[in-house]
Amino acid sequence: MTVSDAELTVETAGPVARIVISHPGRRNAMTPAMWRQLPVLLDRLEADERVRALVLTGAGGTFCAGADLGDLDELLAAGDASIAVAAEERLAACNRPTLAAIEGACVGGGCQLAVACDLRIAAADARFGVPPARLGLVYPAPATRRLARLVGPSAAKHLLFTAELVDAERALRIGLVDEVLPPDGLAARVDALTATIAGRSRLSIAAAKEIIDDRAGPARVAWWHRRARDSGESREGVAAANERRPPVFRWTPPAG
């Protein structure tokens, strides 16, 4: 099934949904309409219980060259209340595991989207950059903190202070991406990884995501432990391991 909304395309194949950024002629720069549409698409996909993992990628061999700056006065006035920040925060809070599959340019707003995903797999030709210091802009605080948590304060400052592009190998060394593949091997690796994730316990993954992202206090962690006990997920997982068979996990994230 393929559904197009503005310049974002959603493709679903079994339990994996793929959101494709497409803006021909602008290296997939995100327009205001695209920023507004991303949370809508995420809401729709989260409501589909068949979807167990999400992939964010770009069309035509480019991930995303950033935000279409458009009305600079509007951008400056919005600050951290911008539609771009709202879209990134919604992506980061998605209750499905998210993976950015990155080719070509992953710059500015594109890099922010990639960092808002749980995992990042890059082709060897990918290039990454965070350009606000070249443009005289202030990088949004949520994106700055998320970047620093991912790569560490020093590497984040290097990216932000220099606004230089870094290649995929350097991105791998500093922890900006998790794996680097030859361009012709990226799709197969993304398919294999998402298939593995889709077959794991959704309860385990959802709990791990909340805890790692520091969105689960003690009461919420205790709630997750109760769900693991009461849902039967743990018993099924242990039984499957003992019986040397694939587990059948049935827990689904609660609506909302």
Results as ranks from 00 to 15, higher is better:
Met1Asn: 13
Val3Ile: 12
Ser4Cys: 09
Leu8Gln: 09
Thr9Phe: 02
Glu11Lys: 14
Glu11Leu: 14
Gly14Phe: 00
Pro15Thr: 05
Ala17Leu: 05
Ala17Phe: 07
Ile19Thr: 11
Ile21Ser: 02
Ser22Leu: 11
Pro24Val: 06
Gly25Lys: 10
Ala29Trp: 01
Met30Cys: 04
Pro32Tyr: 03
Pro32Gln: 03
Met34Lys: 04
Met34Leu: 02
Trp35Val: 02
Gln37Ala: 14
Gln37Arg: 15
Val40Phe: 13
Asp43Lys: 11
Arg44Ser: 10
Glu49Met: 04
Arg52Thr: 07
Ala53Val: 04
Gly58Thr: 02
Ala59Arg: 11
Gly60Ser: 15
Gly61Val: 12
Cys64Ile: 02
Ala67Glu: 15
Asp68Met: 09
Gly70Trp: 06
Gly70Cys: 03
Leu75Met: 13
Leu76Asn: 14
Ala77Tyr: 02
Ala77Asn: 04
Gly79His: 13
Gly79Asn: 13
Gly79Glu: 13
Ile83Phe: 12
Ile83Gly: 14
Ala84Thr: 00
Val85Met: 01
Glu88Cys: 08
Glu89Lys: 04
Ala92Lys: 14
Pro97Gly: 05
Leu99Ile: 09
Leu99Asn: 06
Ile102Ala: 05
Gly104Gln: 09
Gly109Tyr: 02
Gly110Trp: 05
Gly110Glu: 07
Gln112Ser: 13
Gln112Ala: 13
Leu119Lys: 10
Arg120Asn: 10
Ile121Asn: 06
Ala122Lys: 09
Ala123Pro: 12
Ala124Glu: 15
Asp125Val: 05
Arg127Asp: 05
Gly129Ile: 08
Val130Met: 09
Pro131His: 00
Ala133Gln: 15
Leu135Ile: 05
Leu135Gly: 06
Gly136Ile: 05
Gly136His: 10
Gly136Asp: 09
Gly136Thr: 06
Tyr139Asp: 08
Pro142Phe: 08
Arg146Cys: 10
Arg149Pro: 09
Arg149His: 14
Val151Leu: 10
Ala155Gln: 11
Lys157Ala: 11
Leu159Lys: 03
Leu160Lys: 09
Thr162Ser: 07
Glu164Val: 04
Val166Gln: 09
Asp167Asn: 14
Asp167Thr: 11
Leu172Glu: 14
Leu172Gly: 09
Leu172Asp: 10
Gly175Val: 03
Leu176Gly: 01
Glu179Leu: 14
Val180Asp: 15
Val180Gln: 15
Leu181Ser: 02
Leu181Ala: 06
Asp184Tyr: 07
Leu186Gln: 03
Val190Pro: 01
Leu193Phe: 12
Thr196Ala: 12
Thr196Phe: 08
Ile197Cys: 09
Arg200Lys: 00
Ser201Ile: 04
Leu203Cys: 03
Ile205Asp: 08
Ala208Lys: 15
Ile211Pro: 06
Ile212Lys: 06
Asp214Cys: 06
Arg215Gly: 00
Arg215Thr: 01
Pro218Gly: 15
Ala219Gln: 03
Val221Glu: 11
Ala222Asn: 12
Trp223Lys: 01
Arg227Asp: 01
Arg227Leu: 06
Ala228Arg: 13
Ala228Pro: 07
Gly232Phe: 10
Arg235Val: 03
Arg235Lys: 05
Arg235Ile: 03
Glu236Pro: 05
Gly237Phe: 05
Gly237Met: 08
Val238Trp: 14
Val238Gln: 12
Val238Ile: 15
Ala239Trp: 03
Asn242Arg: 15
Arg244Ser: 11
Arg245Asp: 13
Val248Met: 12
Pro253Leu: 08
